[in-house]
């Protein structure tokens, strides 16, 4: 098996794993600050497969999955998980999710970015706030922007 074939097979395996945990999460009820089987599996996948897991999650979250509840939960935990190797990939996914058609997904992307606490998201947040028409989402995204601008001014805070 060539390295490329092996890599493609692993990517397919990771995609299947991610799809299965999203499917299993369809009936879960999530609560802020409380772990779930879904959040634990997400964290395990990211720690085990790194960017491949982030890419597979992105395919589900950014392609208008009908499982909005699980997608929202995933975005929150993507920002919360402590895994420096995938921080850039997770930030890019969260930034893209700010353009979702779903207000709940845009809000969760903002929450994920607040947990990631990475000022490099500031420009994306500013654009998202400028186009946001849903008042409660705009208010929440503005809070995240203020947090990241404060972090940029005082990185050690």
């Amino acid at each position: 098996m060539t390295p490329r074939t092996k890599s493609a097979r692993q990517a397919a395996d990771v995609k299947n794993l991610v799809e299965s945990i999203f499917a299993a999460a369809a009936d879960e009820v999530f609560e802020d600050g409380m772990e779930s089987g879904f959040s634990r599996h997400l964290a395990e996948l990211i720690r085990s497969y790194g960017e491949e897991a982030v890419d597979a999650i992105a395919q589900i979250v950014l392609n208008g999955s009908p499982n909005e509840n699980a997608c929202s939960e995933a975005l929150r935990w993507l920002g919360f998980i402590d895994h420096p190797a995938t921080q850039d990939g997770r930030r890019r996914l969260l930034e893209k999710a700010l353009s979702s058609r779903s207000a709940a997904i845009r809000d969760s992307a903002g929450l994920g970015l607040s947990y990631l606490d990475d000022p490099r998201a500031i420009a994306h947040l500013k654009r998202a706030i400028a186009r946001e028409r849903t008042e409660w989402v705009r208010r929440n995204l503005t809070m995240v922007l203020q947090q990241l601008e404060a972090k940029e001014k005082c990185p050690d805070s």
Partner: peptide, 13 residues
């Protein structure tokens, strides 16, 4: 009461 704000949104259809 603790809630999830997106569930209580009045915007949208």
């Amino acid at each position: 009461r603790k809630i999830r704000m997106s569930s209580w949104a009045k915007e949208g259809n």
